[in-house]
Amino acid sequence: MFSLPVGTIIATSGVFAIVLGLALQSTLNDVFSGIALNLNRLLSVGDWVVLDDDVQGKVVETNWRSTQFLNKTGDLVVVPNSILAKSRITNLSVPDISHGASLTVKMQASVPPKAIEDTMHQVLLGSREILRSPNPSVSITGMSRDCIEVELSFRVPTLLSVAKARNEIFDLIYRHTFAASLPLASDPPAEKTAAGAGKPDFVKSLISLAPIFANLTNDEANALASSAERVLMKQGAVIARKDSTTSALMMLARGVAIVEDGVEDGRIEFARLSPGDVLGERGVLLGSKEVADTKCLTDVTLYQISKGKIAEILRERPAIAEDLAALLLTRTKAEDALHKASSDRASTTVPDLRMRILRLFHL
């Protein structure tokens, strides 16, 4: 009719269809894989996932052809749906966004495993970054003549919380094992300088852990250590009550304490205290009342440093008042964020607190 070679047209169309099919094969693969992924609802925007090729990130967009992830370094990772459909996907946001984590510590085999287990339970009890439900756990996973291997397992609110929680727990492991004289596997054999020994060298080492004493000279630290009085308190005992004024700085040497306020159904937790932490600074340095109760979560060993001994150091070196004021400012701001009725809301600068400290000590 149009004088066209029908055979040539058919042949050309066939070749074109084959070429087009081959060209679109990858795209069609991605499209149909995207349909399958969306129908199965394996992923949603906002989910944290891990693929079998170690790609890990938060889903920020998914379409018919590809899925985009934002990884932990903030880079955008684009994965074709055809590859995604063939991968093993671990969705860390299902059934909820909390995430399980663990870490392993090796201790010297010179102490009973039970002592190590008890200390590691105190480590987990002292953490504020991990979830309380389900309960964190401690497992002895191995023992030899050289070391005892222990695993700490816990859950955190989100995947992004893992690094912060692990860092906090490693810090608590250092403090609690030091306080209990439990040497790490690579440490030299430890001398018995635990909280029960009451040696000035041990108290001085505790003082070095406390930020509030960071700028003391060696002689000043020795003076505080030699004057410190050891106090033992049972689990559940109240160390300092709300609206009371403490007359001594108290430094935790063993165990875990909690600072909290409110009624039973609505307790506000300010802090969890572990070896090296100090309490009572409001009363001693500012003459202020405690804004919350401080209670023993375990049996606790404290060392008390009298207000008179602090006064001696301040008289010799008043500049320390500025260091104390800076630390107090950080703490009072954190408390104010949780407790609207804090009595120190008017003191909002380091100079304000410094002047209050100096006036209290008549300097």
Rank of each mutant, 00 (worst) to 15 (best):
L39K: 12
L252F: 04
D53E: 01
V79G: 09
A194E: 08
A197K: 13
P200V: 13
T348D: 15
R254A: 08
P189G: 03
Q304F: 09
F2I: 14
G100D: 11
A185W: 04
V45M: 05
L249W: 04
S44H: 13
A346D: 14
L206K: 07
T158F: 10
L360N: 08
P95T: 06
L131Q: 09
D187N: 08
V19N: 02
E229G: 06
E269Q: 15
R359S: 12
K242W: 07
K199P: 05
P80V: 07
D261L: 13
G287I: 02
A341K: 11
F361Q: 07
A101P: 11
S93I: 03
T245Q: 14
I169D: 03
N167M: 12
H339I: 14
L297E: 11
A185L: 06
L184K: 00
L224D: 06
D344N: 13
G276W: 10
L70R: 15
L273Y: 05
A180I: 02
P318C: 11
V31K: 01
L249I: 13
A321W: 01
F361R: 01
G262D: 04
A337W: 04
G100E: 12
A221M: 13
V259Q: 08
L184Q: 02
R254I: 01
L206I: 15
R345M: 10
V156Q: 01
G280S: 04
D219H: 08
P95V: 08
G255P: 00
I173A: 02
V59R: 02
S274Q: 03
D75K: 12
A292H: 03
S343F: 06
V150G: 03
A311V: 07
T177A: 04
D265K: 11
